[in-house]
Design a protein around this nucleic acid. Sequence first.
DNA 1: TGTCCACGTCT
DNA 2: AAGACGTGGAC
Length: 337
Amino acid sequence: MKTDSLYDNISSNIIQWWQNNKTLYPWRPVDGAPNPYHVWLSEIMLQQTTVGTVATYFTKFIQKWPSLEDLASSSLEDIFVQWQGLGYYSRARNLHKAAGILKHHFPRDEAGLQKIPGIGPYTSAAIVSIAFNKHAVVIDGNVKRVVSRLFGLEGEKSITEHATALTPHQEPGDYAQGIMDFGRLVCRPKNPLCPQCPLKQDCYAALHGLQATYPIKTPKPLKQQQYAAAFVALKDNSILLQEQNDKKLLQNLLTLPMTPWTRDQEWEDQDALKQAPFDLDWELSPVQIKHEFTHITLRVKVFKGALKASHKGLIPLENLPNYPISTLVKKIIQSID
DNA sequence: TGTCCACGTCT
DNA sequence: AAGACGTGGAC
């Protein structure tokens, strides 16, 4: 461990950097105290999701549901429509559950917050420090990168220890937001802005030219390749969609009729057509869709056909924004036109 | 094109 | 406790 004064010096520099470089995101108050509802909602959205993407969704959410009570009284279906495209849809399910709890009691401590669905160690610390300006150690991907470079660290335990020692008891809200913004904007994963970094003279990685070495990354498991066919059944200007109920992935969203996803690349088009929802004059689209999930790369062949009779599940194309649809399905529909 | 970001939470 | 769970943008 380094001396206390070095940690103090670094955290002061981070706070100062942030106060000079603070960006006004929609969830940050122009002046005055942060709104805990806004902090919670934004932090849930920011899990694994970039700031730019979240800004759009966050603004839509607070326009539709200006208060926590408004959100708590909404239906899960409405939350899904607004959440569509953001990904990690269990967050939307937990958001709906959590709103009902937080409306009655909004804990101001990490242990209490972690009992709420969707709030884990990182998010509880973020809410405590940002919304309530109380001491809590935030450790997200940015903090890990900054701390591992500053001190030349590898491994969870030492990073947590140093992040804890670095977290000041003064201005915890500014520090928490500061170190995460600093990591994103200055101590970037690639091409960090070391020449203009206020911490460069204290940074192990910068002093040794090891910025690219830290953080030490663990090898990721190979993505599984999977294959499927999707069926776009059209009637006038309507498209046939159905509920996703046969798999956990993309649960609660609407989907196109699809064959089961398989690891076998070598199936024939006729095999897919046997699993079509109707006996139709299906036409194979020349465009194959590739879609990346966290752990799966999916390649989809698309069959298009004209329905002769009306059918349950037909949705006018112009009404699609009112239904929860994944980006995968949007991509497939857009590829047809 | 392909890789990385992206530890975040839940199971 | 390792694996499941989405997406888009940077490079």
